[in-house]
Amino acid sequence: GAGLTSLAQLLIARIVGSTSYGIYSYVLSTTSVLAYLATLGFNVSLLRFVSAYRAQERLDLAHGVIRFAFQRSLAVATLFGLAGAAYIFLSSSSHNRELE
């Protein structure tokens, strides 16, 4: 997987050029940070809660905490996506074909 990712990065850099690849790299790193923030820490807390609820044989509570985490993370990720789309829409110019 890592080799294929590296090969894809080299191919993208060759195809789009240095300026466009810089934009691509910046956007990719920003979305990675936002994706991590959108989890709201539930990726760590679910390990604790689901294990504890499973040990207590309270699968109803495990189901509830998973659903809660999914709904909140999805809401934040959707908000980030809409904010990013609005930013691109409002800040793009007719000169910048990469953003269209």
Rank of each mutant, 00 (worst) to 15 (best):
G1S: 11
G3Q: 14
G3C: 07
S6D: 15
Q9C: 13
L10D: 14
L11H: 11
L11G: 09
I12Q: 03
I15G: 02
I15K: 12
G17N: 06
S18I: 12
G22Y: 04
G22M: 04
I23M: 11
I23A: 11
Y24G: 00
V27F: 01
V27S: 00
L28M: 13
T30V: 11
T31V: 09
S32W: 10
S32L: 13
V33L: 14
L34C: 03
L34W: 00
A35K: 15
L37S: 03
T39F: 06
T39P: 01
G41E: 03
G41P: 03
N43A: 10
N43Y: 07
V44F: 11
V44W: 06
S45F: 07
S45Y: 06
S45C: 10
R48G: 03
F49D: 07
V50L: 04
S51L: 15
A52P: 01
R54V: 10
Q56V: 06
E57D: 14
L59Q: 10
L61P: 01
A62P: 00
A62I: 04
H63D: 15
I66Q: 03
R67A: 11
F68P: 00
F70T: 14
F70H: 06
Q71Y: 15
Q71G: 05
S73W: 02
A75I: 05
A77E: 01
F80L: 01
L82H: 02
A83F: 10
A83G: 04
G84V: 00
Y87L: 07
S91K: 10
S91V: 06
S92D: 01
H95R: 10
N96R: 02
L99K: 00
E100N: 12
